[in-house]
Design a protein around this nucleic acid. Sequence first.
DNA 1: TATGAATGAGAATTCATTCAT
DNA 2: GATGAATGAATTCTCATTCAT
Lengths: 199, 199, 199, 199
Amino acid sequence: MDHPLQTAKAWSRSRRRARPQDGDARTRILDAAEELFAGGGYEATPTARIAELAGVPKGLVFHYFPRKIDVLVSLVDERTVVTEEEVEALPGDAAGTLSRLARGLPLRASPAMRRILFREADTHLSVRERLGRLNSEIIRRARFALELALPGGRGDAARVEAAAATFAAVLLYQESICLLTGHHIDPDAVAELIANALH
Amino acid sequence: MDHPLQTAKAWSRSRRRARPQDGDARTRILDAAEELFAGGGYEATPTARIAELAGVPKGLVFHYFPRKIDVLVSLVDERTVVTEEEVEALPGDAAGTLSRLARGLPLRASPAMRRILFREADTHLSVRERLGRLNSEIIRRARFALELALPGGRGDAARVEAAAATFAAVLLYQESICLLTGHHIDPDAVAELIANALH
Amino acid sequence: MDHPLQTAKAWSRSRRRARPQDGDARTRILDAAEELFAGGGYEATPTARIAELAGVPKGLVFHYFPRKIDVLVSLVDERTVVTEEEVEALPGDAAGTLSRLARGLPLRASPAMRRILFREADTHLSVRERLGRLNSEIIRRARFALELALPGGRGDAARVEAAAATFAAVLLYQESICLLTGHHIDPDAVAELIANALH
Amino acid sequence: MDHPLQTAKAWSRSRRRARPQDGDARTRILDAAEELFAGGGYEATPTARIAELAGVPKGLVFHYFPRKIDVLVSLVDERTVVTEEEVEALPGDAAGTLSRLARGLPLRASPAMRRILFREADTHLSVRERLGRLNSEIIRRARFALELALPGGRGDAARVEAAAATFAAVLLYQESICLLTGHHIDPDAVAELIANALH
DNA sequence: TATGAATGAGAATTCATTCAT
DNA sequence: GATGAATGAATTCTCATTCAT
């Protein structure tokens, strides 16, 4: 379960504890890269700074990740998981279901990893793919929740689709928006808004 | 009115005609930078490539823009305008007003510049600020449209605010989302959705 | 007559007034160069900074001084004059004569120009020559003063020579020493010292 | 004991033997810089020339010395030592003591490093400080020698001070003067002169 | 595995100098 | 004379990557 206010550092610390079999150095390299890529971007981050922040010698980074891009790819591969479990939706409670979706994104990833997912999606195919899958999964869940909650009469599949997409857009970019523009959006309010819209 | 399919080149060519006093070289440098920054990103674009595409010697880039970042800043300063005109809103027609807002973002910028605005918001404060102003302006207009459309005594300013922010988020990132995930969002549907939500 | 405490700025201002026929721009360029060469050195001073400080366009510097080195050479040629007048020496008063020599170096040059003379002597022949001539002239005068002041018995030409050279060394480098090490030397005290030494 | 005619290269070669743990490349870079800075000056020496003379690739210079100025600073830090040992002064023999001081400046540095110390004092604070310390140390020793040599109750500390400062000035700049103006000063003669002056 | 020196291509930037107007 | 855009070689500095140990 993600705590949106949890820092990247705390997040990865807890994860490190959870998978102690990770080579310490390799994990520290990924931790450092996560922090730096999220902060300054992949291109602007020298591998030497990663090594420095990780407290490992420069050569070791290339021992584990032969090319710099492998650090990013590994980060995305190992630290963003789009969970595709069954959606738990209560019939009739669209707002609540969306709220729960907002609280538990189908994404196991630190806030830092989420930023990386957006920021580097332009440049690197594997990142873009992961982001696409995440987007689809949120939409799928939102659609499911809304369909379940709505009274039988269909026909407005398009409206449900728009609602799901809207919700996904807000969830996905909420953090970025806040960081970039300083404007905060409350996912619960959006959930309720969208649920209302479909009645 | 923006033609999303218009290329950055065509767009700026038409603008060049509008300001013929622009030094040819300086304009060509900005044109080239616009294209390259939009394509590969600021960090990944060497100034030498800008000069090459602009057809000017490397040194001239630094004659006009002492530091590389000045190219980006000038681009944003000179080629993106957040328009703050009066909102034309019809009382009672929230959906239509939002739709019109979606169709004509209060942003005068080429498609390329829009990508740059979103993509490089991390890179420099001035870009971030411009994006923030755009976000605020969209929210302001959406809020105005929704307030006008709603029956007099509604006290739930919070809901209106959430609706406006949601709309802004969807609009702003619609292009990015589409580019990144291939998923298209129909702004009109979102406009109607949000208008509905407040009844 | 030089006031050692007079600043370079005041000095050149008074001189500018004294030769109003100087082309204003050319003079301002030399003024600026004088200040900058003295402060940061010839090599470290771009011609663009000279133009900027002089308040003239960059091209004008090269109009008057086709190569950068010409600025330095002109500066030395025009703003350091080793005066080779007759020495006024009172027989019997070596200390007083040396003191007067210290107070009125046989050099018409601002403090800034004196620094330039030392600093750039390594690199540029014309500067070195001027410095050499100045050194010789001081020694010549000091020798003359000392010979005049001393009782008839010669034989200690070597001692007189050492005394004159010492005095010249102290005079010439006194400013530099002070600037570099913060240690101040009183020329009068040295004059008296040297005069005493020869009795 | 310094051999003034010993080349910088020979000098540092002998020192290299003394610290064989020095990385060969780093030492060669400093050797090359020493030679080039002494010859043409810091500003006029490109790092590429240093690398070339050292026989190392350009990048290695920056591996050891992240900024060019670090080469100069390291050179001064590591290759000039102002020795602050006890002064060996014979009571009553001021001239001899000063002579000995002249012959063995309290400075362990190659001839090249001495030139650099004087020439680049403007360029960086650390160089200036080192030169200042050398000046102070010479003055301290000269003062000590003169005080010891003088009859007990002399109260004219000011004259001793001027004498010491004069001696330091002559010693410090003797090399420069000679190089620049071709005029040689005999330190022994100056020592005797100054000793005489205080009687 | 682990290390940090070594490498060199390439990036940003500087700057003297030219030149058309 | 006066101007500032234009030029490109040279310079400082960066950095991914290799490699011997």
